[in-house]
Every structure is written in C-alpha cells, then in structure tokens.
C-alpha cells in the first residue's frame, strides 16, 4: 500500500496541482486566441508578473496571512489579480492595439508579443535580480499529513496548503467562468465575438469592451496561476520559461478557442508530465518476483531533465493526428 501512497503523492496530487496551473494559463491563452486571434506568447510572463505583484504585496504586509491562518500571498491575491489585469489591459493598449488598428497580419502581433515577453523578462530581472525567492515571509508553508486508517500503509498522504487552495480555487473559477460565459450579457458578447467578430460588431457589440474584459480575465487568471505555482514551489524569474510550452500545448490539446478544452488540456499535460517522470519501479516492486526482467532502481519513461520535452511531443502528436484538438477548436 505504501507504493500506492507514493503514487498518490507523486502523480495524483502533483498532477492535479500542476494541471490546475496549466489549465488556468491555457484558459487565458485560449480566450485571447479566440477573441483577438493571435497566440499570446507573453502569457507566461504575465503569470510571472502576477506572482511578483503578489510577492511585493506579501513583502509589504507580511502579517496579514498569519492573522487569518492563510498564506499571505493568497490573501493578497485579489489585489495582485487587479494589478496584473491592469497591466494586461495597458500592455494591449500600448503594444497590440496600434498594430491591430494598422490591420497587420496576426503573425506580426505574435511577434510583438514576443517583444513584450522580452521586455517583461528584462524588467522583472532588472528589478528583482535573478535569484529565486520564497513567497513565505512571516508564515510557513502548511503541510498536512493524512495518515491512512488501515495498517497496510504507514506512510501519510502529503498535501500542502497551496495545493489544496489551487484545486479548490480552480473549481470555483470554472463555475464562475461558466456562469459568466453563458448567463451574462458580456459573456455572451465574448462568445459572439469569438464566433464571428464582424457580425458581432455590426450587431452592436462594443468590441473594445469585450477585448478589455478578455484581458482582465486572462490577466487575473494568470496572476492566480503564477502566484499559486510560486507558493507551491518558489518564485523564480525564469518561471515563465518553464510555463510557456506547457500552457500552449494545453490550449492546443484542448482545442484552441475552447475554454473547457483548455481546462482538460491543462490536466492532460500536467498528468502526462508527472506520469512520464514518475519512477514506475516503485509501483512494480511488490511484484518483483513475478517479473521476467530485473527491476532497475529507476524506471521512468523520461529522465527528469527531459521533462520539458513532454508537452512538446504531446503538442506534435496532437498537431499530426488531430490539429483541431480534443474538443474541436474553432480557430485553426
């Protein structure tokens, strides 16, 4: 049974956590893709930016969290979300909107987003240095050990505060996003614009507002994902580098322009990553005597230094076999 606990700790829980984070990023990418029709390369840096805003706020008010019994950065999340959303709206205003108005090809805006990526990266590193930081200043990461009630397993299931929060938060966000997109006027306008921007415009939808709302949603989700990831691991300036491919892979696997697909894609990528670097030898060890081969100490599909290749190969496989993604994305 201990092997099963090991599996739960290393695959189920970490897959759920990283999957939720990828899902939040991928939802933002897919929304931007469907409304503005370009691949927003600076999204992973928006996530990093959100995490740094949360870090700033934590450093300014370190005592808030312990008073409420929650991680300070999480308490500061609404403020960080607002700041990131504002940054996203202004980045759009400063760099993408003029290009859109010029009527350039979408690929030129993609390039501009790469320029924005570099600028954000440069700014963050110039001000914060290149070392990694802990998001906990006055408080410590809460770790819960759940002892299993039966005798066969003597190892506990380990869960941390940020892991619990991100999984619960994702459920709340999904419900809220679903209600927003299907019940509110603005949400319906967004869907209309993603289906047919010209038709949306002539039927009286204020496309500027829709674009702004898209950036606000994408920016807030990016801030949540970035903050929770750096709470769970640590705050690094090169966070974005490790996020960029997975979130794009998740958005494409789910079908571009499909928010629910992006959620599923996030979990597909998250679990694929954790499963491929998982040491299967641990699970097979109880059956060691029945196997026809010698069990090596480590038996993983991919050595962990090649973890970054996993999302890429899933991406390629999807592009070859089903370019529209699992859920038949609209924009191709």
């Amino acid at each position: 049974m201990n092997e099963l606990v090991f599996f739960i700790n290393n695959v189920v829980i970490s897959g759920l956590t990283i999957g939720s984070i990828y899902a939040l990023g991928a939802v933002g990418i897919t929304l931007i893709f469907s409304i503005l029709r370009f691949a927003h390369f600076a999204h992973a840096d928006l996530m990093t930016l959100g995490a740094f805003f949360a870090f700033f706020l934590t450093a300014m008010f370190p005592a808030v969290g312990p008073a409420l019994g929650l991680p300070t950065a999480f308490v500061m999340l609404p403020l960080a979300m607002a700041m990131t959303a504002l940054a996203a709206v202004y980045i759009d205003k400063g760099f993408y909107k003029p290009l859109r108005r010029h009527g350039v090809k979408p690929i030129v805006i993609v390039m501009a987003s790469l320029g924005v990526t570099l600028m954000l990266q440069g700014l963050i590193r110039m001000f914060m240095g290149t070392s990694s930081r802990s998001m906990y200043i006055d408080d410590r990461k809460g770790i819960h050990r759940i002892e299993l009630p039966f005798d066969l397993a003597n190892r506990p299931i380990v869960l941390t505060d940020p892991q619990i929060i991100i999984i619960l938060l994702l459920v709340v966000i999904v419900i809220a996003l679903h209600l927003f997109l299907t019940r509110t006027r603005l949400g319906k306008a967004m869907r209309a614009m993603s289906d047919n921007p010209d038709l949306a415009r002539v039927s009286g939808i204020n496309t500027d507002t829709v674009v702004k709302v898209t950036w606000i949603i994408a920016g807030s989700l990016a801030a949540i994902a970035g903050t929770m990831l750096s709470l769970d691991v640590s705050l690094k300036p090169d966070l974005s580098f490790h996020l960029l491919l997975p979130i794009f892979a998740a958005a494409i696997v789910g079908g571009v322009g499909h928010p629910y697909g992006a959620l599923a894609g996030g979990f597909v990528i998250g679990f694929a990553e954790t499963l491929s670097v998982f040491n299967w030898a641990v699970l097979l060890r109880p059956w060691r005597d029945y196997l026809w081969f010698d069990l090596p100490a480590t038996l993983a599909f991919v050595p962990s230094e090649y973890k970054i290749t996993v999302p890429f190969f899933i991406l390629l496989a999807i592009l070859v076999w089903r370019p529209t993604g699992l859920f038949k994305g609209k924009v191709l």
Partner: peptide, 17 residues
C-alpha cells in the same frame, strides 16, 4: 545584462509599430 533583454524587446515592438 538584463537591460539588454528589455532593450531587445522594446526594439522589436517599436520597429513593428
């Protein structure tokens, strides 16, 4: 060195614009 990163990004966006 990081100022370079920023400058490169800025040049890309400005030239495109």
């Amino acid at each position: 060195l990081q100022a370079r990163v920023f400058t490169i990004g800025l040049i890309i966006t400005l030239v495109l614009r």
